[in-house]
Design a protein around this nucleic acid. Structure first.
Lengths: 339, 339
DNA sequence: GTGAAAGCGCTAACAA
DNA sequence: TTGTTAGCGCTTTCAC
């Protein structure tokens, strides 16, 4: 922190009191137009910039919020962050950002640092089931984004993941695929678990029995994991004719395995991903997937947080409707989409 | 900001002075083991958390840095941010993040807010040529990342973009492509300009005259722009047999145009992108591109900033070497790569 | 319309 | 080893 002009400097230069300067800067009413102008001119001349730390300390409010996301280079989360920043900027809030990397301990560390630094509120995409039990006791305004723990006590902006997965798998079945495998993430991941439920729900609805052998998990879903898991399944049973993957990355891996095994998508193998990330429309054939409006979710989350900060003490909940984006990776018989 | 335990609360609970409590918390030497333990126990009991604002105000240092990037949902920048956060977290710094959206005015606004909030230093990827003339006068430690203005007065972590583009185009020529077009961004974008130079340098080296009609610009390079610009070029001259695009997104657009016009990549049309973003290996055929180690660049930038903050008053410069990643989009005759 | 004084939570110099 | 005092930069009573 470098030394800079403060109110006292302005006061001394003008031979008036600090109080008066403060009043002028904050455009209070009880001050003469004359002095006001003089102060402002001098402030400008000396390149005065208020010290937000001092102001915050004095006024007990700090217009900074903290955002905790699993990872910023994950496309979906980066759009959530963008949404948050859109609104935060408008509302004159600054945003601090921390990555939890799905690590509860690191998450808690960041949380504590944020608290120490007096953030006014927290926006968090929890890394695990116990995340929020770390947050709640701090008694700080917060809103959960995208990874809702099942409860009725927190404000949360989420996505209808159950239905998203359901739509994906239902679509595959309707297209004529019979043996649909599911590629998912960690057992502890709420999102993964919810999407798995949606998968099972769709199977059940169509009278298909879910088979544990058709479900594969990995720690941190990547293209490579998708490749390995799908290859294993394709070689093992030889009956899998479609994949539902809980993330587009995994689907990209399926494409790779399919090519290696000379299986044509979508005729031999149907694929539906999740998130509509950038790769989904770059794959050939283009990937059918589930849209996730990260930016809008981030914006909504900030709006709720702001409501809570200004004292609106109710619970805010919003679930974004699931939306299937049909492209060519699931067109068993006919290509249905080409844009 | 909610009310929380402060030193005074602990002091009163223990009937000792605030100073003593402070000493205990900060584990100074001149304090009895006994009181130290008592204080720590009470602090824990009352769930004490130091007020970083007050500490910073008092000590005139605030362990927060500000990061200004054009856009966080751009893959490359999100990895830069990740690199910065890796190191910042290790060094116990918090990071504030702002998006300039390539808008000088917005950039300046964020800058001022950061300054007001007493960030110790700034990491910035400048949005335009005049960005730094806004930063320099503030006399705050800063490091430029990835978008170096041509000067010798700032610390900067950059990438050898001239050579990156050169390698890309040189490679295309060596593969046997004759008429190589360049798809780029805005005229004001330094990065775009530098890569264009590399393109021209490679042409020149091979005795090919650069042709203004083979160079197309757009405002904010997207897949769609790539599609439109490449289609226009392919329809117009019918002689373009390869594209060098200053970003992978644009290359993805070229793929789309190629498919529409029934041109086979790489036989009819060679393509080389830039950035090695996620889509590059999802495209079919896989895209030859230029690797950009965003995370490592972010880490390096933070390290430099930290040096400057602790008073190491020299200029820090680092240029990451350009690296061509050869995949199949540029294999005019034989596929050369498949992983 | 203006200024003096107190205090936000904390630390550092100086006393005791 | 502990306490007293002053002050970081600012705002807010309360006098004048």
């Amino acid at each position: 922190m470098i030394k800079r002009t403060k109110l006292k400097d302005i006061a001394e230069a003008l031979n008036i009191s600090v109080t008066t300067v403060s009043r002028a800067i904050n455009s209070k009413s009880d001050i003469s137009e004359e002095t006001r102008k003089a102060v402002l001119a001098m402030a400008d001349k000396l390149n005065y910039r208020p010290n937000a730390l001092a102001i915050s300390l004095r006024k007990s409010l700090f217009n900074v919020i903290g955002v905790i996301l699993p990872s910023v280079d994950h496309y979906f989360f980066s759009t959530v962050l963008k949404g948050i920043m859109n609104k935060a900027h408008q509302a004159n809030y600054l945003v601090m950002i921390g990555e939890s990397m799905n690590d509860l301990e690191k998450e808690n560390e960041i949380l504590n640092q944020f608290m120490s630094h007096c953030v006014t509120g927290i926006l968090i995409s929890p890394s695990g089931r116990d995340s929020l039990s770390q947050v709640r006791p701090k008694r700080i305004p917060f809103v959960v984004v995208d990874r809702p723990l099942e409860n009725e006590v927190d404000s949360v902006v989420k996505y209808d993941d159950l239905n998203g997965a359901f739509l994906a798998v239902d679509h595959l079945i309707n297209q004529g695929y019979k043996n649909i495998a599911c590629l998912k993430g960690n057992k502890d991941c709420i999102i993964s678990a919810t999407r798995l439920k949606g998968y099972k729900k769709a199977l059940k609805l169509h009278g298909i029995e879910s088979n544990a052998n058709m479900i594969k998990s990995c720690t941190y879903p990547s293209k490579k994991d998708g490749y390995l898991m799908s290859k294993e399944l394709l070689l093992a049973t030889n009956k899998v004719d479609a994949f539902f993957t809980i993330t587009d990355n995994l689907a990209a891996g399926v494409y790779e395995a399919a090519e290696e095994l000379k299986l044509k998508i979508p005729t031999d193998l149907g694929v539906v991903g999740y998130s509509n990330s950038q790769i989904s429309s770059s794959l050939t054939p283009k990937l059918t997937t589930i849209e996730q409006p990260g930016e809008r979710m981030g914006e909504q989350a900030f709006d709720y947080l702001q409501q809570i900060i200004i004292g609106n003490n109710r619970l805010f909940k919003k679930t974004f409707d699931a939306q299937l984006i049909i492209r060519n990776s699931s067109a068993k018989n006919l290509p249905v989409y080409s844009a």
